[in-house]
């Protein structure tokens, strides 16, 4: 059932360029793809080790800024993405090792506080080193030719770009499908990891650290390893997002609110489920991007009734978003996927 929903969502994302033609929905679809990877990597950390870190956007940011700076300085080539992104990934792993080892020295809430501090430092650093990072304005750059909207993938006899179901087969479509395929591959890789022997050890550590250690699993090593794996996936998601947006700035990849968003997505989807990541990301993104539109429609439809149009005024979208979160947490205490997957035996 849950996995059915997940498959339907991925199919929907695959078909989205042909179903919706406006620029905004394409942006939302690509953002959903990237965020599924980011949130799933965050779930590896929170859901499978029980470590709550607010430094996760740093890994995302390192990947994105790595690719962005290289694209800016080396020109729009694949080499820039590989080298810049590669440096970003390596830096993310180094940072992950430090934070991972730290998590064993400091316990739970204090660790979370430390990651909060580290995250704030990262944001400050990015705005201070503006020569290198573009500061608050971020960096804009060009991407490889294949992804330019002017690139024609298929042309007809007159030299015009071919349309399928009303969608131009241009560079934008190539960019979207690259984002889609990379994200899907990364997501499948993470599902594989969760079901690997390593994944089973992580579940054991989450359940009972002392006993996992006593039967011969070095908890320190496994925790640090997960931290690194999670950081690598987040950094790759950052690279993909940087290439897609052609812009990298604190607001898109590093801000504290992104970390709050992905935390919400994990919690609403269901911690430690992987399928929850997909559901959480889709729900939150659709709500953030389309709730106002839906309320606008609702307000117009009920324009003749008393009070209701006032309540449905699009300006009040945050109120409804908040209310729906409360209801979701009430009815799905373990997250949507988490509650649905819960075994009946007890």
């Amino acid at each position: 059932m849950v996995w059915g929903i997940v498959i339907v969502i991925w199919l929907g994302l695959a078909l989205s360029p042909f179903l919706f033609h406006d620029v905004r929905s394409q942006q939302v679809a690509a953002r959903i793809c990237v965020f599924i990877v980011l949130v799933a990597s965050y779930d590896l950390l929170i859901g499978y080790t029980g470590i709550v870190s607010f430094a996760h956007t740093i890994f995302f940011g390192l990947g994105a800024y790595g690719a962005a700076t290289a694209l800016r300085h080396m020109g729009p080539g694949w080499d820039a993405i590989v080298i810049g992104g590669g440096i970003g990934i390596v830096m993310a792993v180094i940072l992950a090792i430090f934070i991972g080892l730290l998590s064993l020295r400091v316990k739970a809430i204090f660790f979370t506080m430390v990651t909060l501090a580290v995250a704030s430092v990262a944001v400050v650093l990015v705005s201070q080193f503006s020569d290198f990072t573009g500061g608050e304005d971020g960096i804009t750059y060009k991407v490889p030719k294949l992804f330019k909207p002017a690139t024609k993938l298929l042309v007809d006899d007159d030299g015009h770009v071919v349309r399928w179901l009303g969608t131009k087969l241009n560079g934008k479509l190539a960019a979207f499908y690259s984002v889609f395929c990379m994200s899907l591959l990364l997501y499948l890789a993470m599902i594989r990891i969760v079901n690997s022997p390593l994944g089973t050890v992580l579940k054991a550590v989450r359940e009972n650290e002392t006993r996992a250690e006593a039967i011969g699993y070095r908890v320190v090593t496994y925790r640090t390893l997960v931290f690194c794996i999670s950081a690598v996936f987040a950094a790759i998601a950052g690279i993909i997002y940087a290439v897609w947006l052609k812009y990298t700035g604190p607001e898109t990849v590093l801000s504290f609110s992104i970390n709050i968003d992905i935390l919400l997505m994990v919690v609403i989807g269901g911690m430690g489920t992987m399928s929850g990541a997909v559901i959480g990301v889709v729900l939150l993104n659709l709500a953030q991007y389309y709730l106002r539109d839906i309320m606008q429609l609702g307000a117009e439809a009920t324009a003749n009734l008393p009070l209701i149009p006032e309540l449905l005024n699009p300006d009040r979208w945050l109120l409804w978003l908040g209310l729906s979160f409360i209801l979701l947490v009430y009815f799905f205490p373990a997250g949507i996927a988490g509650t649905m997957l819960k075994p009946r035996v007890k």
Binding site: N195, P197, Y222
Partner: peptide, 9 residues
Amino acid sequence: VGMRIFTHA
């Protein structure tokens, strides 16, 4: 085999 990440358990 605990460190194998791409084998299905």
